[in-house]
Amino acid sequence: MDRSLVTLLTKPDGFFLNLNTEPESLGVPALFVLTSGLVGAISAYLIAGLTGKMMSAIMPGMESITGIIAVVSAIIGSFIFWGIVAGVFYVISSSFKGTGTFNRCLEVVGYGFLPQVIGALVAAVYTIMTVPSISVPSLSRSVMNDPQALNAAITAFMHDPAIRMVTQISAVVSIVFILWSAYIWVYGIKEARGLSLRDAQLCVGIPVLLYIIYLVYSVTLA
């Protein structure tokens, strides 16, 4: 039984071994979720700043407003995502006659957020490096009063090569690190819910696969 972070990332089966013999603790998992949310908020803040800059000509201070909304959404969204993932795993594992409490399920899912912290870190570094080179057109008042012109301007902005690159890289990073998290969640759910390895793989694999399909769909059709 090795509770180090390296073991969690590389040999989660060893990390979660005999987890049920210990009292439930959501402190460290919550820390992971909060950290992933805060790091992700940096990317969100930078991207939202671009949107705010587009409308700064009409609404001065829009950059700050969109930035704050993005940061708060990213942090709260991480916790919501944590709860949803745990809930989904809990429900699906119940169909496999899984045992164990929801809090234990929440705990192992939270531990699985550690790769998300690394992923958010990579995405944040890439975003920090890329955003200064993105040119943002300021929308004029007349464009804001013309829905068609506004739609055309936003579409043109979203098809900016730099923006598309940021979106695509972020999607790839998300997919890579969600797979890493899934690897951890499989062993965590297996221990937390007393499932076989196969059942745990199904329990985690199906929702993760659907999520990845959703990500690919969003990026390719956006």
């Binding site: 000509a57 057109p137 300021s138 929308l139 004029s140 008042r141 007349s142 464009v143 013309d146 012109a149």
Partner: peptide, 9 residues
């Protein structure tokens, strides 16, 4: 598009 007096884009 259209730029009115003192407007910019």
């Amino acid at each position: 598009g259209a730029l009115k007096q003192d407007d910019f884009g």
